[in-house]
Design a protein around this nucleic acid. Sequence first.
DNA 1: TATTCATATGAAAAACATTTCATATATCTT
DNA 2: AAGATATATGAAATGTTTTTCATATGAATA
Lengths: 112, 112
Amino acid sequence: MNKKACEAIPYMNHHSYNIFFTNLANPLKIGIILALRKKERNVGDIAKELSVEQSKISHALKSLKNCKIVNVKNRGKERIYSLNKKTILPMLELIDKHAICYCKNKCCVKEK
Amino acid sequence: MNKKACEAIPYMNHHSYNIFFTNLANPLKIGIILALRKKERNVGDIAKELSVEQSKISHALKSLKNCKIVNVKNRGKERIYSLNKKTILPMLELIDKHAICYCKNKCCVKEK
DNA sequence: TATTCATATGAAAAACATTTCATATATCTT
DNA sequence: AAGATATATGAAATGTTTTTCATATGAATA
């Protein structure tokens, strides 16, 4: 399979999909993503904004970063996390549209 | 918030994202989705194609259907499942591009 | 360089999702 | 109607991910 960089080869690998989705399948991580949508922030500010204990945020950020859903830069002793908008924003929009078009706006009601 | 059908309202609800992604965060379900990409199939055929026990497939299909990622129709005693391509295909493409552009093609390597 | 502030990390516990297996349901066939 | 085939379902067992908490690391500052 051709693997030239940044050339769209749809349906590449099974495993990437799984890791990517697993990473997103978590309310805290979604919360972080939505919080980073408007502007980048350091860990403490994210924790404050979401009222969530710091190490929990750090753990979540670690896997998001691992998957390149967020990026980091250092500023003194702080770490500034920002969203990889190019992938995530269109993805959220797809779900929004899905919810509106197929799920009567209350998409994907949890079974049972 | 305006909720007129099929009008894009980005970043609607937190909870939908979570259920949607949770639903996809599973190798079997990804397998089913990829199997349904080319053509619709009944449960038994999916099971055969993936070499997976039937009730496992049924359980997976149930939640995919619940989230409208797949649709069903009846044909005699069979149930024919098909993919909701409009949402899923562009979503997989987004991940492909993400993997290629940000993850050197082996996207989202599992940590540790 | 000792202290403080910001963040990361490991590991056990807890929460949650999937698998398995036995069985139920529903349609078709005879 | 009885049997066969296709699929669905409930519940316990299993597996995976997240949370928690104690502590480590690393940069800044006094």
